[in-house]
Nucleic acid binder design. Structure first.
Lengths: 81, 81
DNA sequence: AATTATTAACACATATATGTGTTATAAAGC
DNA sequence: GCTTTATAACACATATATGTGTTAATAATT
């Protein structure tokens, strides 16, 4: 128990976000500004350091100009739990 | 600033989750068991009391037997920010 | 090399999610 | 009425996300 964080999932999620961002040619700063969240937070999320929240997901979707659901559209791991 | 939570969004999100769950005829307890999270947490999320995390979203998707992205597929508010 | 742009890393206070246990409602069936 | 099932509500400790500020490292440009 005391799982809570789940590093592998968060790293993959971060990579997915970064892929969307770079695919659009946006900097972390631009995304942070549009999403109205600190640039440091964008970096931490992309690096998989934090397990971000629903409200931040919606903010990021706005900043990245994609539907929120797209942020969760990726393969979470090699083997499903 | 000091927004962080965003009650309206979280209430809508909770309603959306509850809609998926009841639409499948599942109890909170069943979902909690399958998602391996406390039943209390499921309730708090459905009631919009907490701003849950990415890892819990994936757990809930598993418990509800839907793709994670579906959990974010709803209209977040009457007027877009 | 120096400047600029971009990202990472670090520290810290505060808010809050999670996990756990317990108790209260509410509805349904006996 | 009692029991079962389902959900809500409360309390509390702990982990951690967020927000903020600062500094370092890494490109890219000139």
């Amino acid at each position: 128990m005391t799982k809570i964080r789940d590093s592998e999932l968060l790293e993959r999620f971060g990579d997915h976000l970064k892929g969307i961002r770079t695919g659009k040619g946006l900097s972390q700063e631009e995304v942070a500004y549009r999403a109205d969240i600190p640039i440091n937070q964008v970096g931490r999320i992309e690096r998989g350091e934090v397990n971000t929240t629903v409200s931040t997901l919606f903010a990021l979707a706005k900043g990245l100009e994609v539907p929120p659901a797209q942020l969760l559209s990726f393969e979470p791991s090699l083997s499903q739990g």
